[in-house]
Design a protein around this nucleic acid. Structure first.
Length: 117
DNA sequence: CTTTTGACTTATT
DNA sequence: AAATAAGCCAAAA
């Protein structure tokens, strides 16, 4: 069961975005905060994520701006990397992936269709 | 209302 | 490249 607070809340907007991240792609905390309407609230996004583990949401696809997972100190960094690796995301020896290639933006799903407007 | 807290980010050594 | 410091903002208490 997923957490569904007020649709108007910052949290709900973040969760809605997380749910749309395609497999094998990632988003950063700051990016989510900005798209949810609160630039700079990256830390708050992280706090929201703390409740996502164990839900249906693809929480593993949210990483930090360095292209690395921020869950090592929580004890399940290896689990998160494992899930992402299973989706095709590759991590270098430094524990970071190629953000420039894997970071996903919501409008990416539309390409030629966007020009209809 | 004020204070505290973080799965963050950026700039600066 | 790695470690520090300071800034940042939404919730909960």
């Amino acid at each position: 069961m997923t957490v569904m607070p007020d649709p108007a809340s910052f949290r709900a907007r973040v969760l809605a975005l997380v749910e749309r991240i395609p497999a094998g792609r990632v988003m950063t905390y700051g990016q989510l905060a900005t798209l949810a309407g609160a630039p700079g609230a990256a830390r708050q996004v992280g706090f929201i994520m703390s409740g996502l583990a164990g839900t249906d949401l693809p929480w593993q696809r949210v990483i930090n701006a360095q292209g690395a997972v921020s869950t090592d100190r929580l004890g399940f960094g290896d689990i998160q990397r494992g899930l992402l690796t299973a989706e095709g995301v590759t991590f270098g020896a430094s524990g970071r992936c190629d953000l420039g290639r894997l970071q996903w933006w919501p409008d990416e799903q539309t390409d030629a269709q966007a020009s209809l407007f």
